[in-house]
Design a protein around this nucleic acid. Structure first.
Length: 673
DNA sequence: GGTAACTGGGTTTTT
DNA sequence: CCCAGTTACC
């Protein structure tokens, strides 16, 4: 029996109904800020108290941050030292855990590698060339496009012939060649003992279908509106009759359509499980009513149970729409507001800037830096996308699985004198090697041009020796030893990059197996290098910058949304279809509902931050088409005050210059600088 | 033939 | 800032 006191303290009657629901399938329609995670955790506590075995309860979520949040709260519930309360994580991380425990069941070697999405593109490129599709005689989709199409087919469970004509019509002439290429990709991954993100789900599903025993008594799925077909299959296989299944979702927050997610799965579940109980959580504990009034006008109404958010917290301050002259003015207005709130006692980490795409915060970041305001950015450029980190992971994967061709390809090209072409040639040697290619590295070295033999031999010898080390951190150390000279020769800023890798390696000690650690790193990369520096100081304070996608499930006291203009929110590439536009509206809804106390939307009148902005027709921004609704809901419109003080951010000089030029062009010849 | 250094043009969202 | 395309060197 667990000591889980007070889990139902302060739960509403509806929330308690969710927490204490019995065995049958349960679908919770939870609006934003209605305490859904808290309620799920209360349900977990209730189940444990009634004697459910923790290792037979599975908590699943689509996004990493939601999974972390859920698991973090679950362990807080147990108090320190109580160990794990349930099995849980993202679909992908749980799949990896299941598969790495029994890889042979699905025909994978122990220590199989997980390719990150960038490496899938490398593999596509490799096979694209092998199949003679890389020539310039006829245009063929680029490797990254191919990888997107491939992933879409897998995640939607739809054939190439369906996906390509409807979503990638410009590639329609190549369906046959693509099919052949994709079959080769699948075979190559199998032959070399690697899987990609999609394969993790495919293998897990296969495992579940082959093995009909139930492994979990209770399956709790969060963010169900963001699951795609293959994830639906997995959930259905985990709980075929719906017994013990709880799903939580909100169709209005479905924002992963581009990954093959479809919020209709939530409704379909009700058709498939007609006995499922449905409970709606509508009382919002997060935001003041002023913010929810705005949210309710933006909230899409089509389909699903209609939810109108009602605040438990009173009216609060009216949300603002701040007009500024241009994008740098917008950045200034945001930082002004952040610092003003900070003066009033709102911590920086209680304030977030939420953007549609990573680069939309560029100017805000410059302004924050210029004014010495610390910030942390989530969801932008990933640590894992840094070239040297990918180099390291690839090299480390070879230690566990010497047949990993994508890893070989990357490692080989890191040597001066080996480019794409020679690397491909050497890959043939690796593949032809009947024995273990890393133990017999001399054959690979002999096939290389004389000029690189020495450095290649050094690398491979050190890597081969890494296998004699048993512990994950010792192995990682040895891998870094092998890489050090290559990184020095390859990157001009090698000291910083090596510093990153030292920190990365020191984190490996916590893992038992190097391959498991690498997979975890690939599936759940640290948001930034600073995350590796250990637990942050308690008094450390910073503004949070995040994409709206990465902000889902989180909340801040003050939320700032820059660029509420057509072309950004909604983003121009989504305007082609009604479905795309609808998703942009839901995304805007997610952004709005992150704010507890103060919501500020920003609309610059033009985006004059590029040199060519003057001749760019899009220089003058259109207010977002969603703004009309928001204004009708009582939003206050403000003009950002033109700043009279000396310019602080470097970009401001550029803007001032541009204005001068513009006036000069309008009245006469531009003055010579 | 292959590599590397240079140039110019473009950039959604995530596991 | 990263990719593709081009050119100059080995």
């Amino acid at each position: 029996m667990f000591a889980l006191s007070n889990w139902d303290d302060g739960l509403t009657e509806t929330q308690r109904a969710v927490a204490t629901h019995g065995e049958g399938a349960l679908v919770v329609a939870a609006g934003a800020g209605t305490g859904k995670t808290r309620t799920l955790i209360a349900r977990l506590a209730h189940l444990l108290e009634r004697g459910a075995a923790p290792e037979r309860i599975l908590l699943l979520s689509f996004t990493r941050r939601a999974a972390d949040d859920m698991l973090g709260r679950a362990s807080a519930l147990a108090g320190s030292g109580a160990g794990r309360l349930a099995v849980g994580g993202t679909f992908h991380s749980v799949a990896h855990r299941v598969l790495s425990a029994n890889p042979e069941v699905v025909g994978l070697p122990p220590g199989f590698g997980v390719l990150d999405p960038g490496e899938v593109v490398d593999l596509m490129d490799l096979l694209r060339a092998e199949h003679g599709l890389a020539g310039i005689t006829e245009r063929f989709p680029r490797a990254s496009t191919l990888a997107t199409i491939y992933s879409r087919c897998v995640n939607r469970g739809e054939a190439l012939g369906v996906v390509v004509p409807t979503e990638f019509p410009w590639c329609a002439g190549h369906v046959e060649a693509m099919g052949e290429l994709f079959r080769a990709v699948t075979a190559r991954k199998r032959d070399t003992g690697v899987v990609d993100f999609d394969d993790l789900l495919l293998y897990w599903r296969a495992l579940l279908i082959a093995d009909e025993r139930r492994h979990f008594d209770y399956v709790l799925v969060d963010e169900y509106q963001d699951v795609n077909q293959i994830q639906v299959d997995i959930v259905r296989a985990l709980a075929p009759d719906g017994r013990g299944l709880t799903v939580v979702g909100d169709e209005a927050q479905a924002i992963y359509g581009f990954r093959g997610a479809d919020s209709r799965h939530l409704r379909e579940l009700l058709t498939q499980l007609p006995d499922a109980r449905v409970i709606a959580l509508e009382r919002n504990f997060r935001s003041h009513q002023g913010i929810l009034d705005v949210a309710n006008t933006v909230r899409p109404t089509e389909g699903g149970p209609s939810i109108r958010l009602e605040a438990a917290r009173g009216p609060g301050a009216a949300p603002r729409l701040v007009h500024s002259h241009d994008a740098p003015g917008e950045a200034r207005a945001i930082v002004d507001a952040i610092l003003a709130a900070h003066e009033e006692g709102v911590a920086l980490r209680e304030q977030a800037v939420l953007v549609r795409a990573g680069h939309h915060s560029d100017l805000v970041e410059i302004e924050l830096s210029a004014r010495h305001v610390p910030y942390r950015k989530y969801g932008g450029l990933r640590f894992l996308e840094a070239a040297h980190v990918r180099d390291f992971i690839a090299a480390a994967r070879l230690v566990d699985n010497a047949h990993d061709e994508v890893a070989w390809y990357r490692l080989l090209r890191l040597h001066p004198g080996i480019g794409t072409s020679r690397a491909r040639g050497l890959l043939e040697v690796v593949r032809a090697q009947p024995r273990d290619p890393l133990s017999h590295w001399a054959d690979v070295v002999l096939a290389a041009p004389t000029s690189v033999r020495e450095s290649l031999a050094d690398t491979l010898r050190t890597l081969a020796q890494a296998r004699e080390r048993v512990l994950a951190d010792a192995r990682a150390d040895a891998v870094l030893d092998a890489l050090r000279p290559l990184i020095r020769a390859h990157y001009p800023d090698s000291p910083a990059r090596l510093g990153d890798l030292e920190r990365l390696v020191s984190a490996a000690g916590l893992s038992a197996r190097l391959s498991d650690w690498l997979a975890e790193l690939t599936l759940d990369p640290p948001a930034s290098t600073s995350d590796l520096a250990g637990p942050p100081e308690l008094d450390e304070d910073y503004v949070v910058i995040s994409t709206i996608h990465s902000a889902k499930g989180l909340e801040w006291s003050h939320v700032h949304v820059p660029h509420v203009i057509d072309g950004v929110i909604p983003i121009d590439m989504a305007l082609g279809s009604a479905e795309g536009l609808a998703e942009e509206r839901r995304l805007f809804y997610v952004a709005i509902t992150r704010a507890r106390d103060r919501l500020s939307l920003y609309a610059p009148m033009r985006l004059a931050h590029h040199r060519r902005a003057l001749d760019d027709r899009h220089s003058y921004a259109l207010l977002s088409r969603f703004v009309d609704d928001v204004v009708a809901a009582g939003l206050v419109i403000e003009e950002s005050a033109p700043s009279r003080e000396a310019p602080t951010a470097p970009t401001r000089h550029a803007v001032v210059d541009l204005d001068a030029l513009w006036r000069a062009e309008a009245t006469g010849p531009a003055p010579t600088p």
